[in-house]
Design a protein around this nucleic acid. Structure first.
Lengths: 206, 206
DNA sequence: TGCGGCTCTTAACCTAGGTTAATGATCAGC
DNA sequence: GCTGATCATTAACCTAGGTTAAGAGCCGCA
């Protein structure tokens, strides 16, 4: 999965994006960044690559430099429910499974050809757990996820399918083209058929 | 709101419950506990007391020693949605508003006559923010809330009203008697009428 | 070039749960 | 005791969204 012909430039760029992201979210300085740097792997993955299988231990966070990833879980009756999408310049972590230190309840899968950085959890826990910036990063991620979850909950509780769809295309204008509709439907908590109806209404009144 | 005739015994007991709760959740030792102790207020509140009005700055966390409290938000069309209930021996905090440092999106209201401990946020932020146990407590609360939120989200996405009701009475057997049904309905994301139907089914097959 | 898979759309039908409204039960205040 | 609120129940009806199924566009591959 590593880039076949080593493209140093791309790797450097990827890490630099990630560094800036961390610097912004938890005010990580350069020394702190250097602490983690040796342990990250930059790699590419084609669409439909599974980064985190369900039921297995969480081994890493991922930073999406470029591309698009979905975060989902399985229901007892065998359906998949998309909980979130993460695109360029976002970090994906299986936070609740880490918090509970239990095998992963969630899966992560690429939807596009992706450029990713892998942050092994073991390193984090063994080498970076004494460093405040890296701890802050985990805590801050939990905080932001909490906020995100609450927004989503309220949206699911309050809004109709049509409203949810409209807000979705407004908030993520490009996702409608980048993500198969059945995945969007699952994210919105409706069936693909219903999504298609919402979309038709939305097109009509545009 | 302070206990009219000072009941030192009750106050001591309340604080002791809280201390044990903190010791369990974040391994807080006695020295650390003593740091916060002088700043807490133990008080009683009758039912329907508002502890956190919507849109105002968050001023405190609350520890529910005894009684029952609901945590809710208002929709644009004037309905209230219950997001959680907190009973004996739980802490209630307006976490997401604190995280975003924005005026409270949520309200807190007592449902029963309560014995509460108020933990002023200012103290937390000004005097306890250097102490690791008190920081851990906030971070840990966020983590547990995150997990709780994800469970709730999955439940809302996957289960029918009837299933949600059944799980509710199973998980919180006493709440059906302690909480008015229209509040439970709101928590479950259904109308009181629908709740009544679920309950009738449930009684029938018991 | 044609074929087999996917994905999306549309239509017809069905159902869980919303809405409205009437009826009781419980309780507080007088 | 009666009266008016507040809450729960039940029934009748309605609708958003689920289900099923058929067709159309598209893409990869032989």
């Amino acid at each position: 999965m590593l880039i076949p012909e080593r493209d140093d430039r791309q790797v450097a760029d990827a890490l630099d994006y990630m560094r800036r992201f961390f610097a912004e979210t938890v005010a990580m300085d350069d020394a702190e960044w250097q602490l983690g740097l040796p342990y990250f792997n930059v790699f590419q993955a084609p669409p439909k690559t599974c980064l985190q299988p369900q039921g297995e231990d969480v081994e890493a966070h991922y930073f999406v430099v470029k591309g698009l990833v979905r975060f989902y879980y399985n229901t007892e009756d065998g359906r998949e429910v998309n909980k979130a999408f993460y695109a360029d310049n976002h970090i994906v972590g299986n936070l609740s499974s880490i918090i509970l230190s239990e095998p992963s309840r969630y899966c992560i899968e690429t939807l596009e050809h992706c450029l990713l950085v892998r942050l092994p959890l073991k390193v984090w826990q063994q080498r970076l757990n004494t460093d405040s910036a890296w701890n802050r990063l985990f805590d801050r991620s939990c905080q932001l996820m909490l906020v995100r979850n609450e927004r989503r909950e309220a949206e699911l509780m309050i809004s109709s399918a049509g409203e949810r769809f409209r807000r979705f295309v407004k908030n993520f204008p490009d996702y409608l083209d980048r993500i198969p509709q059945y995945h969007i439907a699952s994210y919105l908590g409706i069936t693909p058929v219903a999504l298609s109806r919402c979309k038709a209404d939305w097109l009509r009144e545009k």
